[in-house]
Deep mutational scan, measured.
Amino acid sequence: VTLFVALYDYEARTEDDLSFHKGEKFQILNSSEGDWWEARSLTTGETGYIPSNYAAPV
């Protein structure tokens, strides 16, 4: 399992994006889409796309 942590807060701009807060942890589901990764929040259980430059490996 690849775990990442949010470096900044992010507010979803589309219904496919995932809103999150700094410090929140994610499981990365798909990182082959370039700058946007499909991720599941370990806090909320929700799935959506996150900007890859807002996350770092745990």
Rank of each mutant, 00 (worst) to 15 (best):
Y10M: 02
L3F: 12
F20Y: 01
E15A: 13
L29Q: 06
S41L: 10
T44A: 01
V58D: 09
E11W: 08
D16K: 15
P51D: 05
A39T: 03
H21G: 07
K25R: 12
R40M: 12
L3S: 08
T43N: 09
A12D: 01
Y49N: 08
H21T: 12
D9C: 10
N30V: 08
A55H: 04
L7G: 02
K25T: 11
E11R: 08
A56S: 10
Y49S: 06
R40S: 05
E11P: 04
E24R: 00
E15C: 14
W37L: 11
S19D: 04
V58F: 10
A12I: 02
K22Y: 05
I28E: 00
T2G: 12
Y10L: 02
I28C: 04
S19Y: 03
E33K: 14
L42K: 03
D17Y: 14
T2L: 13
Y10S: 02
V1A: 12
A55D: 03
G48K: 03
F20M: 10
D17S: 13
R13C: 14
E33I: 11
V1W: 13
P51I: 03
K22I: 08
G34K: 12
F26L: 12
R13A: 11
S19P: 05
T43H: 11
Y49E: 01
Y54K: 05
V58L: 13
L42I: 10
R40K: 12
L18Y: 04
I28M: 06
S41G: 02
E38D: 04
H21N: 10
Y8L: 08
A56E: 11
S31D: 12
A55R: 01
E24Y: 04
Q27H: 13
S31R: 13
G45E: 04
L29W: 06
N53Q: 11
W37S: 02
S19W: 03
T47R: 11
F20Q: 00
V5I: 12
E38L: 15
L42F: 06
L42T: 06
D9P: 06
G48F: 05
V1F: 14
Q27M: 13
Q27C: 14
Y8S: 07
F20K: 00
A55M: 15
L18A: 01
N53H: 13
D17P: 01
D9S: 07
I50L: 04
G34D: 13
V58C: 11
E33H: 13
G23R: 01
G34V: 11
E38H: 14
N53A: 13
F20G: 09
E46H: 12
T43V: 10
D16I: 13
D17Q: 15
S19I: 02
V58N: 06
R13S: 11
A6V: 04
F26E: 00
S52Y: 10
E15P: 14
P51H: 07
V58K: 04
F4D: 01
E38R: 12
R13D: 07
W36R: 15
E33G: 14
N53W: 15
L29N: 05
E11C: 13
S52M: 09
V5S: 03
E24P: 01
E11N: 09
E11K: 10
K22P: 03
H21Y: 11
G34R: 11
T2H: 11
A6K: 00
A12N: 05
E46G: 07
T43W: 10
S32P: 11
V58W: 11
S31V: 12
L7V: 06
D16M: 14
S31F: 15
D9W: 09
Y8W: 10
T47H: 08
S31Y: 13
I50Y: 02
I28S: 01
F4W: 14
W36H: 07
A12H: 05
T44C: 04
I28T: 00
P51L: 06
Y49V: 07
T47Q: 09
K22A: 12
R13N: 09
T47L: 09
L7R: 02
A55I: 15
R13H: 10
A12P: 05
V1I: 13
R13F: 08
Y54V: 06
T44S: 10
V1D: 14
G45I: 04
A55Q: 04
E33N: 15
A12S: 10
T14M: 11
D17C: 15
A39Y: 01
S31N: 12
R13L: 11
E24A: 05
H21W: 07
P51Y: 07
S19C: 04
L29M: 09
W37Q: 04
S19H: 07
T14N: 14
Y8N: 06
T14S: 14
E24W: 06
S31A: 14
T43Y: 09
N30F: 07
K25V: 15
I50T: 00
N30W: 07
A6D: 02
K25P: 06
Y54A: 15
E38G: 04
K25H: 13
T2I: 14
P57Q: 08
S32M: 13
E46K: 15
T44F: 02
Y10W: 10
Y54D: 02
S32G: 11
T47V: 14
N30R: 08
Y10R: 03
A6I: 03
W37I: 09
E46T: 08
E24H: 07
S19M: 03
L18H: 02
P57Y: 05
N30G: 10
T47P: 01
F4G: 04
V1H: 13
L18K: 01
T2R: 13
N53E: 10
Y10K: 01
G45M: 07
Y8E: 08
I28D: 01
Y8M: 10
G45H: 06
A12T: 03
T14P: 02
G48A: 03
L7W: 04
A39M: 05
E24K: 00
L3H: 10
P57M: 08
D16R: 15
G45K: 04
K22S: 06
W36F: 11
I50F: 04
V1S: 13
E15H: 12
R40Y: 10
A12L: 02
P57D: 05
Y54C: 11
K25S: 06
T2W: 11
W36P: 04
G23F: 04
E33W: 10
S31W: 14
H21L: 12
Y54S: 15
L3T: 10
I50W: 00
D9A: 06
S52A: 15
H21V: 14
N53K: 12
A6C: 04
A39F: 02
